[in-house]
Amino acid sequence: MEYFTVNNSTGVRELVERLNGQSFYTNSYDFLLSDELIIYGFLKDESSEYGEGNLFVFGKTVRPDDVILATSDSIFSKIKRYGMSSKYKGLLNAKGEVTLPNIYDDICLFAYDRILIEKNGKFGIVDTSGKILAEPKYDQIFDAGEYTIGFIIDNKVGFMNTNGSVVINPKFDKATSYNNFNEGLIVVSETIDGLPYQYCIDHYGLIKGDMEYIGQEDEYIPPYDTYNDDEYSDPLDAYDGDPDARWNTD
Results as ranks from 00 to 15, higher is better:
residue 139 D to A: 07
residue 156 K to Y: 07
residue 55 L to D: 00
residue 136 P to V: 02
residue 46 E to G: 08
residue 115 I to M: 05
residue 151 F to D: 01
residue 205 G to N: 05
residue 236 L to F: 12
residue 170 P to C: 09
residue 152 I to R: 00
residue 104 Y to T: 02
residue 184 G to A: 06
residue 152 I to W: 02
residue 181 F to Y: 14
residue 18 R to Q: 14
residue 100 L to D: 00
residue 121 G to L: 11
residue 159 F to H: 00
residue 116 L to S: 01
residue 82 Y to D: 11
residue 104 Y to C: 02
residue 72 S to E: 15
residue 151 F to Q: 00
residue 35 D to V: 03
residue 236 L to G: 13
residue 158 G to T: 04
residue 145 G to V: 03
residue 233 S to T: 11
residue 171 K to M: 11
residue 182 N to F: 15
residue 216 Q to E: 15
residue 133 L to A: 07
residue 16 V to M: 04
residue 164 G to L: 03
residue 173 D to S: 12
residue 159 F to A: 01
residue 237 D to V: 03
residue 24 F to M: 12
residue 244 D to V: 07
residue 195 L to M: 13
residue 96 G to S: 05
residue 30 D to W: 03
residue 84 M to N: 13
residue 33 L to R: 09
residue 154 D to A: 12
residue 167 V to C: 05
residue 240 D to N: 13
residue 49 E to Y: 06
residue 133 L to Y: 06
residue 178 Y to C: 08
residue 60 K to E: 15
residue 37 L to V: 04
residue 74 S to L: 07
residue 167 V to D: 04
residue 16 V to P: 01
residue 22 Q to G: 05
residue 161 N to D: 15
residue 108 C to R: 02
residue 230 D to R: 08
residue 192 I to P: 07
residue 206 L to V: 12
residue 241 G to E: 08
residue 22 Q to S: 14
residue 136 P to A: 03
residue 207 I to L: 06
residue 157 V to I: 10
residue 78 K to N: 12
residue 200 C to G: 05
residue 7 N to E: 15
residue 1 M to A: 08
residue 89 K to F: 03
residue 234 D to G: 03
residue 13 R to Q: 14
residue 240 D to H: 09
residue 230 D to A: 07
residue 148 T to N: 05
residue 121 G to S: 09
residue 87 K to V: 10
residue 11 G to C: 06
residue 237 D to P: 01
residue 183 E to C: 07
residue 121 G to F: 09
residue 72 S to Y: 09
residue 156 K to W: 06
residue 186 I to F: 01
residue 155 N to I: 06
residue 82 Y to Q: 03
residue 169 N to S: 11
residue 77 S to D: 12
residue 65 D to L: 10
residue 34 S to H: 08
residue 221 I to A: 04
residue 140 Q to F: 13
residue 79 I to T: 08
residue 133 L to M: 14
residue 191 T to V: 13
residue 87 K to I: 13
residue 186 I to R: 00
residue 68 I to S: 09
residue 208 K to Y: 13
residue 92 L to H: 02
residue 2 E to I: 10
residue 133 L to V: 07
residue 14 E to S: 08
residue 220 Y to V: 12
residue 157 V to S: 00
residue 208 K to W: 10
residue 194 G to Q: 04
residue 87 K to R: 10
residue 4 F to Y: 14
residue 115 I to W: 01
residue 204 Y to D: 15
